[in-house]
């Protein structure tokens, strides 16, 4: 465990907790894309298939349970909670899941390190995680109102993967193992997707004005 990875995990943890807290306290999911949250629940499910078979460390298992629990409870809140669901903007959040899920699945079947179920599922989760934020970014551009918490949530999500890239660079130089090129590519693509959001986030933060994404 290195500082980049710990910082990345904490940033990631913080992002899902910020979102869960926002939805739980103000009982609203305005500006949040249910599609993205469902994709993240799928990412964690396919990523952590080995949670009960391969024990790596207590930290690893606890964090996996937190990510699985928080992502599914966010989906539950937006879908089932009688108050929260009213603030869900389903007419705007129309990104089709299968536009992302199917290409990632096909890609994972053809481009992976080992053609086993677990390995293909793990690779699928990497590809899907890279693009899962798209429905959320589309929703932000459509609704054009980004409340602070949602902006912070997206920013933290982007920051976590950027920290992971630093972690991979660090491990590449300090440990005899190599980071799989698939992990690298998916991680870099994911971070680049946030790049334009980061740009506008910093602009709004610097000029101390409300965050506006160009249409």
């Amino acid at each position: 465990m290195n500082i980049f990875r710990l910082a990345g995990d904490m940033t990631h943890l913080f992002s899902v907790l910020v979102l869960l807290l926002k939805i739980h306290t103000i009982k609203s999911c305005a500006g949040i894309s249910l599609k993205t949250q469902e994709l993240y629940a799928l990412v964690f499910t396919t990523r952590y298939l080995d949670i009960f078979t391969d024990f790596i460390s207590l930290y690893n298992t606890v964090m996996k349970l937190i990510f699985l629990g928080s992502s599914f409870s966010i989906v539950w809140y937006i879908r089932r909670h009688k108050i929260v669901r009213r603030s869900y903007d389903k007419d705007q959040d129309t990104f089709r899941h299968y536009f992302l899920v199917i290409p990632c699945l096909v890609l994972a079947v053809f481009i992976n390190h080992k053609f086993t179920f677990k390995e293909v599922m793990w690779t699928f989760s990497l590809y899907l995680e890279a693009v899962a934020i798209l429905p959320q970014l589309v929703l932000l551009q459509r609704t054009r109102n980004i409340d602070n918490l949602t902006g912070q949530y997206v920013f933290l999500l982007g920051a976590y993967r950027a920290l992971y890239i630093l972690n991979w660079i660090y491990r590449h130089f300090t440990e005899p193992h190599y980071v799989h090129w698939i992990t690298w590519i998916a991680g870099v693509v994911q971070t680049l997707l946030y790049a334009d959001f980061f740009y506008y986030y910093f602009q709004s933060w610097k000029n101390n004005e409300k965050l506006q994404l160009p249409a």
Binding site: R5, D9, H12, R47, D50, D54, I56, S57, N60, M63, K64, F67, W122, Y164, N167, W168, R171, E175, H177, Y178, V179, H180, T183
Partner: peptide, 10 residues
């Protein structure tokens, strides 16, 4: 590490 590189990551 016995596990592959990024398999011990989240």
């Amino acid at each position: 590490a016995t596990t592959e590189s990024s398999k011990d990551e989240l």
